[in-house]
Design a protein around this nucleic acid. Sequence first.
DNA 1: GCTCTCACG
DNA 2: GACGTACGTGAGAGCA
Length: 939
Amino acid sequence: MATADASFGQGHHLHLIDGSAYIFRAYHALPPLTRKSDGLPVGAVAGFCNILFRYLENNKNGDAPTHVAVIFDHSSKTFRNDIYPEYKANRPELPEDLRPQFPLTREATRAFNVSCIETEGYEADDIIATLSCKARDAGGKVTIISSDKDLMQLVGNGVFMLDPMKNREIGPEEVLEKFGVPPERVVDVQALAGDSVDNVPGAPGIGIKTAALLIQEYGDLDTLLERAGEIKQPKRRETLIGHAEQIRISRRLVQLDCDTPLDFTLESLEVRKPDPEALMDFLNQMEFRTLTRRVAESLKVEAPPAPETPAAAAGPETAEPGITALPFDHSAYEWIRDAAALQVWIDEIAEQGYVAIDTETTSLDEMRAELVGISLATRAGRACYIPLAHRQGGGDLFGSSDLVEGQLPIDVALALLKPVLEDAAILKIGQNMKYDWKIFARHGIDVAPIDDTMLMSSALYAGQHLHGMDTLSDRYLGHQPIPIKSLLGSGKAQITFDRVPVEEAVKYAAEDADITLRLWQMLKPRLHRGHVTTVYETLERPLVPVLARMEMAGVQVDRDTLSRMSNAFAQKMAGLEAEIQELAGRSFNVGSPKQLGEILFDELGLPGGSKGKTGAYSTGADVLEDLATEHELPRRVLDWRQLAKLKSTYTDALQDHINPETGRVHTSYSLVGAVTGRLSSTDPNLQNIPVRSEEGRRIREAFVAPKGRVMVTLDYSQIELRILAHIADIPALKQAFKDGIDIHAMTASEMFGVPVEGMEPSIRRQAKAINFGVIYGISGFGLARNLRIPRAEAQGFIDRYFERFPGIKEYMSETVKFAQEKGYVQTLFGRKIHTPEINAKGPGAGFAKRAAINAPIQGTAADIIRRAMVRMPQAINGLDAKMLLQVHDELLFEVAEDAVAPLIDAARAVMEGAAAPAVHLTVPVTVDAGQGTNWAEAH
DNA sequence: GCTCTCACG
DNA sequence: GACGTACGTGAGAGCA
């Protein structure tokens, strides 16, 4: 064995282990595994340690290495991206539970006392190439432990490869077998053939076989390209001449760099025995019990007792969640005052691979909010706050604008954080990340990749509880966060966050990041156990940037149109109000249901007055509708109410939501607003803009496309009924959808035995009500009220419907049974909606049953449009078009005039095919399109 | 803050 | 046998 001061040379044997390949192999070979105490994903680390341990054990005898190192990729960006920006661009995103394990595998390597090498800007392959060259030149032997074909160019002259999977040595002969050329010509072949995995372009239409033939014939690539004109096959000839430059670039991409800068010597890689204490410590910390024991046996030391962690002691969390024992210590949170302090955190984050993050701002409206500070957390209890724009509180009338001491300038802080926030190897964890994503986006930072504890909670617990931070913290951490009100106050005296003293802000903000991190540690591993990882990863998380961009784009709303309508409404209302007072015989507040009830039922003595549980008369639209046959007044009130609604909620309120900077209205979508998976829209709600009444529909005329652009809407036709036909498997309904016939008329025809041709509109209307009723969990009472027919008659319709479509009844009872047994129902895509009330006694059970029947249908429709939205940006990339709004089964776009047709084609294709490939629907899905200068026209 | 009413899918 | 009921949302106004 070599000694430390002897230089590397003859008789020495260097082993180079391709660390990244080991990690991926370990990750994919093993089921997801998390550390018991805190849920940290460690499956790949465990696999990596096992492989490394086995390798070291095997090398105790025989042709043992004298020197060894594990080489890792440093980051995704390398010098090859400068040559060709698209290099490795189509690599799928790293699984999010793998990312945080990268730094841990480095730690593992060091714990085994094996040199761990990575260099910024270079791939592991380049470092392996450089070390191989150096070792070979020094007269030593080299074995590269990897099966990566890109490394085969290094084989020869004492350099071998060892395929760790097959335990097979790869020498020049095996390379010749694989590439048809000797190792030194492998680069030429790869340059021609390209590589779809790494996105190396190569020469189109030329694969390894053809490339090898060409190189065999012409000797090497340069000669081949020089004499390309001599190639007999015309197509090959043209390809090579036409793509010569691309081929040369490809060669530079595949050519490994033997001159990577190294800050260590070959000698320093000498094989060392692991330090038992350090290794045991690491394995124990990872909570790898079996491996710890086996390593202890091998090293002939005693295995330390496995730590009994508080969370592990709390047992399975399914019944009642375990509570983290580590208390919240607000005094431990750090105030970041300068760049040096921030850099310490950034280094720690880079090393760890993940960070919880939260932003503090001056407003809840992300489009107007100013960034005030940022908090970070790396471990439970370890969090900091970076104040950026805190101002002296109180002060004079104008509010002092002096910045508080001890803050980093925003530009400086963001410049330092940007690489972290955009680093593909660092996971950014947030609670409701869409908010923070938008704040950072407004500062030119594209935060990725992300995790969101709120969305995890929704995927896991929809229907059980809400998903706000306070709820989650209380429930899963047993901790009540500092209320924001204690900092800002409430009502008139409320201040903005930039006026909060930094000392207090540190406690509040850092705590939020700390909580988020702990929630992540707790919820993340539960995704797998709850079988909702796919739901989270395909239906929740990817929507964050999609929705954020839609919200930031906003929709143009014409203030003048709204203003004119407001005035017109006000006039009409004044006229109606006078008439109403006249009819009532006295003046009263028409807008007060209480006063109206007294007028109608006490003073005018109209029939049908019924009091609700609060003791007030019910004056809803249906009640007034019935009274309208008896008296003039209710009709007038109905008209007045319609106008009042349109004016207050739409024409007036909407104007206040026009952003002064963009001139547009920016709604905010909630991914967790509805238990079924539907989105909800707030501030303002743009999912309930009137359309059913003629008068109301005109409000959509104010939603306009700018000059030269067009509003385009695409909406799913009868999506929920189609899903019902599929799920309940109703042949007659499915056939009707396949034939494209009017589904309500068909239902009526089946039920009442009348032909579709020349059908009475009232018959069709009744069938339509039944079809909808089914989706909602039909009851005789509900249908009777909706159709204004006797309850017995309604029940008769339902009976006939079930007789005709027995599958529907079966679906309904099966779904309820499923819910009663499991406590939840599911969509076709696996989204779970919990039904905690399903086994309750009393009226609650009725609600829960109907909700359980409806949820899979409404939820599946929601999943389908979510899938379409996730795919949409890619599908319309290159078109001058923006997706602006979603209204449950409709998507609204703003499109350049000349891009309308291709936009409709592309968007329709995505929407109609959105269920595939996860679910194969046995009914066709169709999408209707419309266009116009405003939303009313487009619809 | 709660209730009623009503806008949407 | 009675109980209240269509499913899912958000917002404005009145009233305590």
